[in-house]
Design a protein around this nucleic acid. Structure first.
Lengths: 193, 193
DNA sequence: GTTATAACATACTGATTGGTATGAAATTAT
DNA sequence: ATAATTTCATACCAATCAGTATGTTATAAC
C-alpha cells in the first residue's frame, strides 16, 4: 500500500562501498555518495540510517565478499603450498595491475577508524581473525596430507600469514618496486616448509 | 627590524604531528590544530603554507625521529638476533601499553594519502625503504660475525621484516589478543636463523 | 623618537559538511 | 475513486570547513 523503491539497494550499496574504499570514511562526502550511488540524500538516510550506518553496511558487504574470495582461492588448489603461493602472487599481481591502488577496504578502515570507534575496531579485527581461521584450516589440510612438515604450528603460522598479508597490502599502497614485494612473498612462503 | 615570533616552531610542529598522528589528515581540522598547537590560524599559514604543508612538515619530523629510533635500537645490541627480538617485542609492548593505539604516523599516512597524492606516496615509501636499509645493514653485521647462517639473503630478509613490521603495526590498531601478535613475532623471528 | 617590518589576535569569507523538512508522485488496500 | 502510505526530488538547515583580510602590537634599524 505504498510506492515501490526505484533503486536497487545492493547496487547502491556497492557504489558506496567502492567510494568508501577509495576515499575512506571522512573524505567521502554525502555529495560524492549521492552522485556515485545514483540516489538522493533522503534515500540514503531512510535506507541506511546515517553516514556511519552506510559505511558499516558497505564494510560488511566487503568483508563477507572478501572472505568468500579468500576461501575459494585457497580451496581451489590441492597443494597447500601451491595454493598459498598462487594466492599471494595473485594479490600482488592484481594490486600492481591497477593504478592507483586502493588496497583493502577492511585494512583501510582498521587504520582510519579502529582507534576512534570500537564498533569498527571489532569488525575489522574479527575479519582478520576469520581470515586466520581460513589460513589455519588450509595449513591443517597440508599437515594431514603430509605435504607440510609435522613440526609446523598451524595456528601460529596462519596468524603470521595474516600479519604478512596486511603488511604487503598496506605497503603496496605506496607502490614500491615490485621486486621488493616479490622478495617478501618468497621469503614469507619459506615458512610453509 | 620586526617583531619576534612568540611561539616555538618545533613545539607547535610537534603538537601538530601528534594530532595528525591520532586523527589523520582529513579528520584533523584547523580548529583542532590551532588549539593543540597553541597558536592562531594565520601563524600556521605564514609558517607552514597550508594544511598539507603543515602535515608534510609533521610527517617529515616523525619519519626522521622514527628512523633514528629504529637505528639506535638495532645498534644497541651486539647480538643481531637479540636486537631484532628486543626491537619487535618493544614495539608490541609499547602499543599494548597505551589505549587507544594510534599506530605509526607514517603507515597511517601511507594508507590515507598515498593513493591520492604522489608526494606522500613517495615520502612514505622512501621511509620504508630507509628502514629496510637499516634492517639489511643489521643483518649483514650478523652475517659478518657468523651469528647468522651464511645462506641468508640479507636484502630479501630485511624487506620481509619491513613488511612484517607494517603488518604488525596495522593489525595492532584493532587490538587483537596479544597472543596472536606474540605468536606472529616469534614465527617471523625464525627467519633469522 | 620615528619608521619600517613582521607577528599577533580577531573576525570574516565563500564553500562545503552531515542531516532534514516539505510537498509532490506513485502505489496498494479498500 | 478514495484513502493511506511510502518514496521521491527539491530545497533547506545550522555548523564547520580551509583559508584570508584587517588592524593592532611589538621589535629592530636608523
Amino acid at each position: 500500500m505504498a510506492r515501490q523503491r526505484e533503486f536497487d539497494r545492493e547496487k547502491a550499496l556497492d557504489a558506496a562501498m567502492h567510494l568508501f574504499w577509495e576515499k575512506g570514511f571522512e573524505a567521502a562526502s554525502l555529495s560524492d555518495l549521492t552522485s556515485r550511488m545514483g540516489i538522493q540524500r533522503p534515500s540514503i538516510y531512510s535506507t541506511f540510517g546515517d553516514k556511519k550506518g552506510l559505511f558499516e553496511a558497505a564494510l560488511r558487504k566487503y568483508t563477507s565478499a572478501h572472505a568468500a574470495y579468500v576461501r575459494a582461492n585457497l580451496q581451489n588448489n590441492s597443494s597447500v603450498k601451491e595454493a598459498f603461493r598462487a594466492f599471494f602472487e595473485n594479490i600482488v599481481a592484481k594490486e600492481y595491475g591497477k593504478s592507483p591502488n586502493w588496497g583493502c577496504f577492511c585494512i583501510n578502515s582498521m587504520v582510519e577508524l579502529s582507534p576512534h570507534d570500537e564498533k569498527f575496531e571489532i569488525l575489522t579485527r574479527e575479519h582478520q581473525m576469520y581470515l586466520s581461521v581460513i589460513f589455519q584450516e588450509t595449513i591443517e589440510r597440508g599437515l594431514r596430507s603430509g605435504e607440510l612438515e609435522s613440526g609446523i604450528n598451524a595456528k601460529r603460522l596462519a596468524q603470521t600469514l595474516v600479519v604478512s598479508l596486511i603488511g604487503l597490502t598496506v605497503f603496496m599502497k605506496s607502490r614500491p618496486e615490485r621486486l621488493f614485494v616479490d622478495n617478501s612473498v618468497k621469503e614469507i612462503l619459506t615458512l610453509l616448509r
